[in-house]
Nucleic acid binder design. Sequence first.
DNA 1: TATCTATATAGATGCCCGTCGATTTGGAGC
DNA 2: GCTCCAAATCGACGGGCATCTATATAGATA
Lengths: 117, 117
Amino acid sequence: MPVDLELAPKQKRPAGERCCEPIVYPEVARDHALRMAEVAKALGDPIRLQLVDVLRKHAGKVCVCELVPLFDISQPTLSHHLKKLRDARIVASERQGLWAYYYVIPDSLQELSAWLT
Amino acid sequence: MPVDLELAPKQKRPAGERCCEPIVYPEVARDHALRMAEVAKALGDPIRLQLVDVLRKHAGKVCVCELVPLFDISQPTLSHHLKKLRDARIVASERQGLWAYYYVIPDSLQELSAWLT
DNA sequence: TATCTATATAGATGCCCGTCGATTTGGAGC
DNA sequence: GCTCCAAATCGACGGGCATCTATATAGATA
């Protein structure tokens, strides 16, 4: 007896024994999966994860010039990582004169966090 | 007055005004950052995130043959994604005859989840 | 204006990723 | 043995990533 998954009738199980109970996948994540994967991907680098960790632990905004010496990478590379986090809408920045201040966008991690819980 | 961050005296702030308060970064994440980034990286693909979502929502083990028709990718590509999740120690598998059953390793997401909270 | 400084961007390099079709592996059943 | 099947692996392709050095941008200061 074929299983007939609601969401993907592309392939038929061969008639015969079933290997397991059919999955009824309510597709809850489909809409959110892209966004959550985007956030996870941005966090999928040790330096970026530590960057977010620093910014989260430090209340308020943090100057880039304080971030640079924390890591063994060049300033352009750090700038590249900050851009990745900006593109993923995890952090945002403000310019004040020569300095740039970064902070974590509130609730930007909430969706992924809730899913993981 | 130079800032002298405890953790990274590699670079000296130039004498003069400070742009912000010095960060005292207790380095909590350094040991865990690699592992958490590894998990986040594995979740940083929409298909893998949905795969984990399916496996988590479905109590018990799920046969690969049930997973294949859920996604618009070839069987080898799905196998590749499952391998990535295995390599990241997020899921594990068991063989039973012709079929392979996958399941989420309990608590494999806990560390990242706790950090995000 | 000229000069210094903090940050961002550009361009290059080597490596990794997602995807595919083709093939291999290994158990099931004849 | 042989055939069928589910799953994994292989090899290739195009694109993206992390990193660097060099350069550009733009604000501050004189």
